[in-house]
Design a protein around this nucleic acid. Structure first.
Lengths: 377, 377
DNA sequence: CAGACTACGGAAAGCGTTTGCCGCAATTTC
DNA sequence: GAAATTGCGGCAAACGCTTTCCGTAGTCTG
């Protein structure tokens, strides 16, 4: 199989022994020139044969090369490829917490779409801290990722938004694209979730089921998603001619919901207002709240009705079945990636709107004054 | 600030105008030589000033460089850095399904540890298909990742294991390290989960609570984790002098548990054996089974006791509280990363054993013949 | 005060690819 | 049958960085 004599050292600058001796064969990794040598062709031909891209290679040579590559178990060095090409096959995904079912489902959707495109997904968990979001963005900028998906809700803080916009601009200057999931607060492609509309519709439906006194377990003031849902819900109640809800705030997490529910139960509202139904601004808070109720001996839905938002996978197995606003989470993730990949540098920011669908379940049974049906409609 | 004359084209081969014109300033990305020029130093000095690593740079120059870098908003090109250095700051994580709370928690642990080490995590979801595991491994090999963590349970299939061993060997030949979470079936670092022992202990505890007729919702035959748990449980029952359990198989997922529970309820065992307690080999199956029971009007734990395995986060909010074998999932993830990072090429495979802790809750109340306490002990 | 160090900036090779251009041979065209 | 065209292999520059080696200036030792 010695197809070719060893190529003479024709490199003009390599006539003398180079001053470097960075252990030429130190890492056992097989390189493209190993493959080329094995196949008896130049690296250029080997590259073209394997990559296919730019130009055709005669069939027999192509086969020789692929055979050699297989024999040596060659894997292209993606880093070197990236330096040469100036772009990678990596996309970044930044979430608040990958262990939160909301983000886990979005991530699953992103990954499924990424797989279709032959992309690798690098995930960062920020724990909701905006400065870590910036760090990840910088790191992904270093990676020269094709795209980055910011999946966490934005925080309404001008300073942070400005810093974020700067980082994103830098990222895009480097040839990447960014997409944000949640709300359009930055001049980039955005998958806009209709939080306000969803919450408003939920309020309307709950009002339709006969509830009139509401509590809300709201999230942090600064979190735009949480705020939009609260405001939408308030608006829906107002339109139905109902009194404003009692609002208690907590973290945007399971524990936050648990704590907020306890706080509500301990508050003056609880005694004074005769709250019949509680809306937790997301599902993880809602399930935390359910447990809080249970711990306090409050039976759902008889003593209190409860609704959430998102329709996370967990809900399939909680009892009573929780009313919520369904968001197609995996689809949102996939959609975000598709959106960002179809964009080209310099293109004007686009939007993709996602509507939530109100799903009433057993946790908010009908409550007609005539005392009829209490079961899930 | 024109500190330095434009460097003469001293490159031996670059005497004539290069034939390439790959848009030198096409991508707006700032490079190190931009920074060097801005700071009026050589790229070597700029590199040393920013990276810090190899050698010291005089303080005033260092400051000039970092200031220039900040001014230009420079982000190092990690790809180029990787090609030059021969290693990256990326680790790979391969899971079955990132939306499964078990894997999500492990991933969270891995990410937390990765953050501490300044590493980026690339996640792949295989949907349990071993061939996709191989694909990801190949892709990560191309990325020249420092390490790869295989978090899914192994499948007991010699052909697949051999292929996996080959890929891992290639990965390690390229300078990376691999670690497997679950069982030691491959000659690599492994975080071994004591599935058998945990299930055995669970069986003993349940026997101690007075149950004598058991069913098991087992996973796929080939999945080693599922098999070990089944065998451990069987063993535990045998040691307690109890009859072997009725076994129904299902997928290792929530839906698999749901389906398997239905199958059990429809089977001859159910009518003939008088099953008092069911063990689902993992928690997601168990919660699926809970819902199946509820749908069929079976009350837990009065009509049937149920236990799972893993102690996923979801369990905090299911009712009745599910007995299980607790695994420190996030810790396992972090531990896997630490293990693989402390390894050096060529080092003999090491093991880290993780024990499960039996946690009995309300889903398996005491069942003494004397009819006493039924509540959680 | 000469000689030996030490400190540190800069030049340039090299990392493993991709890809523009050159040139050779085979084919087509008139 | 000469000229033009096409197909395709190979050379070598380039990607943006790291790191070795070299050389100069400053510092220390005897």
């Amino acid at each position: 199989m010695a197809n070719q004599p060893a190529p003479a050292p024709a490199h003009p600058a390599a006539s003398s022994t180079g001053p470097l001796s960075t252990g030429a064969a130190s890492t056992g990794a097989v390189t493209l020139s190993d493959v080329a040598r094995e196949a008896g062709v130049s690296v250029a031909t080997a590259s073209r044969a394997i990559n296919g891209g730019t130009r055709r290679v005669r069939e027999d040579l192509r086969e020789r090369v692929t055979a050699a590559a297989a024999r040596l178990n060659y894997a292209v060095n993606a880093q070197a490829q990236a330096t040469a090409r100036g772009r990678t096959n990596v996309v970044g995904l930044v979430v608040h917490d990958i262990a939160d079912p909301y983000f886990a489902s979005i991530a699953a959707g992103v990954m499924r779409a990424a797989e279709r495109h032959g992309l690798l997904v690098t995930v960062g968990s920020t724990d909701g801290r905006p400065e870590r979001e910036l760090d990840y963005l910088a790191a992904l900028r270093g990676q020269r990722g094709q795209a980055v998906i910011l999946a966490g809700s934005r925080v309404d803080d001008a300073r942070i938004l400005r810093a974020l916009a700067e980082q994103i601009a830098a990222f895009e200057a480097g040839g990447g694209r960014a997409v944000v999931i949640s709300q359009q607060l930055l001049p980039v492609d955005t998958v806009v979730v209709e939080n306000r509309g969803g919450a408003r519709a939920l309020a309307a439906e709950l009002a339709g089921r006969g509830y009139s006194r509401f509590g809300v377990l709201a999230g942090p003031r600064a979190l735009v998603t949480a705020r939009d849902r609260l405001e939408g819900f308030r608006d829906g109640l107002a339109r139905a001619g109902l009194r404003a809800p009692a609002v208690v705030r907590g973290e945007f997490t399971r524990d936050g919901g648990h704590a907020a529910m306890n706080e509500l139960l301990d508050s003056e509202f609880w005694d004074a207002d005769g709250i019949e139904c509680v809306f937790a601004v997301n599902d993880v808070m809602a399930v935390g709240a359910m447990t809080a109720c249970r711990e306090r001996g409050l039976a759902l839905p008889d003593d209190l009705a409860l609704a959430g938002f998102d329709d996370i996978a967990t809900l399939r197995d909680v009892h009573p079945a929780l009313s919520t606003v369904r968001l197609p989470l995996a689809e949102i993730g996939a959609s975000a990636l598709d959106l960002v990949l179809t964009g080209t540098a310099g293109m004007a920011p686009r939007q993709r709107r996602v509507k939530g669908e109100v799903v009433l379940r057993a946790s908010t049974p009908g409550r007609r004054p005539d005392g009829s049906d209490r079961s899930d409609g």
